[in-house]
Design a protein around this nucleic acid. Sequence first.
DNA 1: ATGGCTAATATGTATATACATATTGCCGCG
DNA 2: CGCGGCAATATGTATATACATATTAGCCAT
Lengths: 229, 229
Amino acid sequence: MHRYQAIRAELLRRINNQTWPAGHVIPHEEELATSFGVARGTIRRALGSLVDAGLLERKRRAGTRVARPTAHASTLRIAVVRHEVEARGGSYGYRLIESREGGGELDAGGRFGGAALRRVLCLHCCDGSPFQLEDRLLNLAAIPAAREANFAAISPNEWLVAEQPYSAVRTVLRAAAPSADDLVHLAVGASQPVFVIERQTRLLGEPLTWARLSHPGAAFEIVTEAGGY
Amino acid sequence: MHRYQAIRAELLRRINNQTWPAGHVIPHEEELATSFGVARGTIRRALGSLVDAGLLERKRRAGTRVARPTAHASTLRIAVVRHEVEARGGSYGYRLIESREGGGELDAGGRFGGAALRRVLCLHCCDGSPFQLEDRLLNLAAIPAAREANFAAISPNEWLVAEQPYSAVRTVLRAAAPSADDLVHLAVGASQPVFVIERQTRLLGEPLTWARLSHPGAAFEIVTEAGGY
DNA sequence: ATGGCTAATATGTATATACATATTGCCGCG
DNA sequence: CGCGGCAATATGTATATACATATTAGCCAT
């Protein structure tokens, strides 16, 4: 156990047992440093991780106070579909359904401002049955190599992960009734829910791709964990 | 723009434009410090945030390399329901449906090892229509105050946020067909999907609460963003 | 070859120090 | 009494330094 970890644990204990209730201004860095017998940098490190975890709030001159929690934060990881399938011990299958190039007419959401696009519709399977339907738009201006890529052999999901770095992602999760494509390709009935992940990626501001990833609801869930300590 | 931010941006640029492709071992800290003309600590700070973002991987003696991305990571925030409703400009309503105390028989999942529990079922509304059904188990051994709390006046969600710190959360998200309770209280048809958030919190290892939060699918989505730079 | 030991090395932790800067709270002026 | 400005203060950034430690690469003996 390193010192900053021990200090973080002690600070957490004081927050948890209400020694320092929500809203309380805790002693300033120098004071904590002296009382714990460490350097200010070590205190800052311990405080920093509690700030990242949302348990403390800091403002210059005003000091550090215990946050009034308003939200649970945790980290969401969305993996490559094939890995997801293999991690559950399933055998992975893939099939390209449709691929074509076009312009703004493909961009129903108006997210790409009329750039040349490629649209790919494909299906990921787990043990032979449909697992995820991937409906993807690729910005050919930003990713010229996507024009030549053979998406019959490799899914856009996996091709992008291997080829294309990005700097920002936006993800939307929701439950929905099946779309027309879902009904045809996911083998779900109109009364069964689908779990939809909508994802946009950007590179330094420029939109790269948009994707709608739909799962038969019963077969899929997302798990996140936060706060090991 | 601080130096560590400028350096992080430059490192990100090199990763993005494949100057340093995935798997590449980048120069070590001292070398980067010299070439950027800053102290090692400043380099470490820039590297640290890229490691947190999952773009770099570090190992002692082996050096720092560009990660082969395997997953999109982003931060998920789940707010107090009332704030969620108010943030969308709706008027918030709340109704307690059922509250009772018991032991292991309430704990269908076996998560509390037979401890005394309180089960609360209640409904959160937005503009008068059902928004979220909250089905919650509270561990009375860990949260004795929960025995006295008046959940007709305040929801367990909000009471817990105000009263009870926690140190770890596990969240599961999925689309599902409505449960029996959902059908009755959420005013959804059997053919409509519900969005289910299942959440467990622990305090230093001890389980505090378990909750199943269900939303009418069409009315609800979760949005996450990552990577501002 | 092979297996284990050793030394080199890059990252990890901790300290001390200096200065920057956002905010607060107080003081004095009008 | 109100308001503008100034000084005090706590956090934020940056640097230099020392030592700890995981891991690798290479060497040597078997």
